[in-house]
């Protein structure tokens, strides 16, 4: 092993720094935000570390008969929270701003001691899922949006994989006039921004009664992905030895059986990679969904709108974003197995 020289060390340090600055730090802030309560979100300076508990100081004012509740912020300083004698208000405040779920009676009973013993400190466990619950509560049609997103993703994958892989097979296996030109044209489709296509497409979809439907949205998302799928799959189909298909034909299969049982499984990595692209396009898009839907938003659009509507409660939007990320992460990791397995392992 050669020792790294100065330049290499510097480069590695730069790369690491970039990773930390560009990926890890924003991710950590994002995560802490998503799990912060309504008060922690506005801490400054912000600590990018999750907290699981809330510490409050409660004192009793005998003149007004009210409990004075103060909480410790992340820097350990006391901040004013609420002054009240009503259990309901206490409980409501704790739930909404501190993500602490306690019944009014429970709180009043606990605070009783401050009447005799003076100011006391209490530590409560945060309900970590408060933001997620609230996101679905305050965002109109959040559940529907989640279902919509799943539907549109499935449609997009089906449309772009069926058409794209068939085109890819044709490009790989057959010779026909204008093949190269069509190949380039398909690339050009990818060059158009989807927003540019969505406006004229909106008109077409209205004509066909497909406006504000998931199938209409899926058609839009499929446009660039059909081209991409055909590119990815054709390169894999080219690599599949023709004799593998011919053997299947000789040994009793017809053309369709051969495609299903031999060609398709061998092209699985390409299909997996393509479906990943299709998934991400459909799952993450907001702007086209904004144009092409009216009453039936997708999840990405719902989160986008949640951010717009809740400028004072950013933690809910962050929670929504986490909800948006998780399926994409799961899908990518499931698919990744196939992509790696085939592209690295099996030679076809």
């Amino acid at each position: 092993m050669n020792k790294l020289n100065g330049i290499q060390k510097t480069l590695i340090a730069l790369v690491l720094a970039t990773v930390v600055i560009a990926v890890i730090v924003p991710l950590m802030f994002f995560f802490t935000n998503a799990f912060s309560n309504g008060r922690e979100v506005y801490d400054y300076p912000k600590t990018p570390i999750l907290s699981f508990t809330v510490k409050v100081q409660v004192s009793y004012n005998e003149d007004t008969g009210m409990y004075i509740v103060k909480y410790y912020d992340r820097n350990g300083e006391l901040q004013n929270a609420v002054n009240t004698s009503f259990g309901e208000i206490l409980s409501g405040y704790f739930e909404q701003y501190l993500s602490v779920y306690r019944t009014p009676e429970e709180l009043l009973e606990q605070f009783e001691i401050t009447k005799t013993e003076g100011p006391q400190e209490f530590t409560y466990g945060k309900n970590m899922w408060h933001n997620f619950k609230t996101f679905f509560l305050i965002t109109s049609k959040a559940e529907e949006a989640l279902v919509n997103s799943i539907i549109v993703v499935i449609f997009t994958i089906i449309i772009s994989l069926t058409l794209g892989s068939m085109a890819g097979y044709a490009f790989a296996r057959f010779r026909f006039k204008g093949k190269d030109q069509i190949n380039v044209f398909m690339l050009i489709v990818r060059m158009f921004p989807m927003v540019g296509i969505s406006i004229p497409l909106a008109v077409i979809l209205i004509r066909f009664n497909l406006f504000d439907t998931m199938i209409g949205l899926a058609i839009l998302y499929s446009l660039p992905n059909i081209a991409l799928t055909s590119w990815i799959t054709s390169s894999i189909f080219v690599g599949i030895n023709r004799e593998l298909e011919e053997a299947s034909l000789v040994f009793g299969a017809n053309g369709f059986q051969t495609f299903i049982k031999i060609t398709l499984p061998l092209a699985l990595p390409a299909l997996a990679a393509s479906s990943m692209y299709a998934f991400l396009t459909a799952w993450n898009d907001t702007i086209s969904a904004l144009i092409l839907t009216n009453d039936h938003p997708t999840l990405a659009l719902a989160v986008y709108q949640a951010i717009g509507d809740n400028t004072t409660n950013l933690q809910y939007a962050a929670a929504g974003s986490i909800i948006l990320i998780i399926p994409a992460l799961i899908f990518t990791f499931v698919i990744r197995k196939y992509v790696n397995q085939m592209w690295g392992g099996v030679s076809v």
Binding site: N241, E243, L244, E246, A247, S248, L249, V250, F251, G252, A253, N254, K261, I262, P265, L266, L268, V346, S347, V348
Partner: peptide
């Protein structure tokens, strides 16, 4: 091809890589 009663051994063997040997022979 399938109805001609022929079987073939190919230059590249054409053994299907996504099936086990048993599945290959049973196909």
């Amino acid at each position: 091809p399938k109805d001609r009663g022929v079987s073939m051994i190919f230059q590249s063997y054409a053994v299907w890589p996504h099936m086990t040997v048993r599945e290959n022979i049973a196909y």
